[in-house]
Nucleic acid binder design. Structure first.
Lengths: 329, 329
DNA sequence: CCCAAAAGTTTAAACGTTTTAACTTTTGAG
DNA sequence: CTCAAAAGTTAAAACGTTTAAACTTTTGGG
């Protein structure tokens, strides 16, 4: 069941078989067919370990993910998968759990030809380690900038800016920002955009807060604000889950969205656009991000010169039903 | 940067280094430390391709998934990942896209030591292929039964049965079942349970229908039923997405859940328990499924004798706020 | 029929490990 | 101090490919 068997079966030499395997041009069509036929009959599959060993390439790209029950990640990953397949690479996904764990298997030069880190957590360590092992790496949706490591990020500043402008355009003047955990750069960036938009309109933030990227923590924040009797007329949220939690908390007090209060989310999670109240949100350019990420990695692998280290992509505001003109009291 | 360098650096032989690498007992503690130190200093990582080649093992388990922006899959995968890590294996996830694609890279004996197929689509072909290549495989949440291929499934019949009994217990007599695509065995099984529960109560199905596992198609079904003026007092749905679509369609007509109509979902998707109307649903035993799946695969890999081919796990009804006593008209 | 180009062959080395076998050195109990 | 057991050594083969080099055969245009 190895290349020698195929050679014997087809009556040709091992070298010729190897050439067929590698699409080398100098092999007569008739012989190529003979080889292919022999492979078929023997059910032959070249041993990829042996192949990797001698060529120093595996044909697989690793991708580390932290969470995947999330539409943003889902979309990025699918694009990456498809695009990689087009280029003849396989994608191996690995879950990076808290303590570390999963990713380690990717972090071996002989296991993958390159790595894509999607929203990495322990980013700096990872990059350091990969550099030491000289494994090509590309960062997607990352926090920090690293010299020489190409990355693709979303312009979160712009996302925050546009979401807020939209609310201002609807006549809101009391607008609050409920961001996610402050570890994330994106949280700060969105806030920057928020503040800037208000500033340009001569307004000041009605208030800001932060919580986890979950429905329940958004819910808690809204409940707290209600207890303190300081509701704004519009909420701009760090993500859709927070937005949903806020909507839910408001609903429980009989406050309607968007009639009484407007809410904007971020990410366009699965079905937030289909379920009441259809959420106005900011959609990230996942397809572009994945596609550019793969392009960059391919260039890195092929030793090409690198374009500017950070590619920043514009998100898009999706206006739906959770935002409306401010209610005049 | 190979084992010879380590041997030279540590002043010991290659064989000894290899023994350290493989935790062979017959190496003096002092020398073991020397070797470890040399590895550390040289930043040595054993080449896994070479290793796999000679040992015929890779230490990685492949898992094929079709979709992962879904809490059911998410939970299964996380458990599998953790449990595999405990046993010293790595998990490589691969997305099985329509035409095929992704999974192929897993399907090579020299790339993985075993495979877990989660809710496989082209199940029969896959199993056939893997059998031909004699790659150990375990099926999770699969459709068909295969001799010799161990599998772990959920008792969908029971899920349907309990959900329906719950509704009957609330006084409902007009209960409809909106299942997912009829390709899935689970859809038929849940229906069987549904019918059985009704039967035992001396009732007949108010109606059944099927649609995709999406919010929008659940929405369409409900709209259609409303046009035909044949609403039941309770819906049991093939999954939470369908349930959400139905809730949404009803809401648009001013029909309240659960006040006017009760709705039960399936899967306990992310935050359907946190958002209005907190969905009564059936939770599948993902942790058990993942855990047992790994155990079975390990046994297969170690050539142990197999327990009965199909393990069937009980789901659990989670009663929340989308179901209530039938409204007496 | 000649002859150059194309296609193919054989041989050998290389990739980095593990594993076996036969042999040598070290260790420490008595 | 002896000697057997423990620990280590060297040498070689094996895993299944790719690749280079030198050589031979086939092909088809003139």
């Amino acid at each position: 069941m190895n290349i020698h068997d195929v050679a014997k079966k087809s009556g040709l030499s091992v070298v010729t078989v190897s050439r067929v395997l590698n699409n080398s041009p100098s092999v007569r069509e008739s012989n190529r067919r003979k080889v292919l036929k022999a492979m078929e009959e023997l059910n032959y599959q070249p041993n990829s370990a042996a192949r990797s060993l001698v060529r120093g390439k595996t044909g697989v790209i690793g991708m580390s993910i932290t969470n995947f029950n999330d539409s943003f990640y889902d979309r990025v990953i699918r694009v990456v998968n498809r695009k990689l397949a087009e280029q003849g690479y396989f994608l191996a996904l690995s879950i990076a759990e808290d303590e570390d764990g999963g990713t380690n298997f990717l972090f071996q030069k002989d296991r993958v030809d390159g790595i894509i880190l999607l929203s990495p957590l322990e980013e700096k360590e990872y990059v350091e380690e990969l550099k030491r092992k000289s494994i090509p790496v590309v960062l997607l949706d990352n926090q920090f900038q690293h010299e020489d490591v190409p990355s693709v990020v979303v312009d979160n500043y712009q996302g925050g800016y546009e979401a807020t402008k939209h609310l201002i355009g609807l006549g809101h003047t009391q607008i609050a920002y409920i961001g996610g955990p402050s570890v994330f750069l994106s949280v700060a960036e969105r806030k920057r955009g928020f503040v800037q938009a208000l500033d340009e309109a001569g307004l000041t933030p009605y208030g800001t807060d932060s919580c986890g990227f979950t429905v329940s923590s958004g819910y808690e924040v809204a409940k707290r604000w209600m207890r303190e009797d300081k509701l704004p007329t519009a909420f701009f949220c760090g993500d859709d889950f927070i937005a949903l939690g806020i909507v839910q908390a408001l609903r429980e007090e009989g406050i309607r969205v968007p009639h009484d209060i407007s809410v904007v989310g971020f990410d366009d999670q699965q079905f937030v656009g289909e379920f009441y109240p259809r959420l106005t949100t900011v959609r990230q350019p996942e397809a572009q991000m994945g596609s550019i990420g793969v392009d960059l990695l391919m260039k890195l692998i092929n030793g090409e010169v690198m374009p500017p280290a950070v590619t920043k992509l514009a998100p898009q505001l999706l206006v739906r039903e959770s935002t409306a003109s401010v209610r005049l009291t």
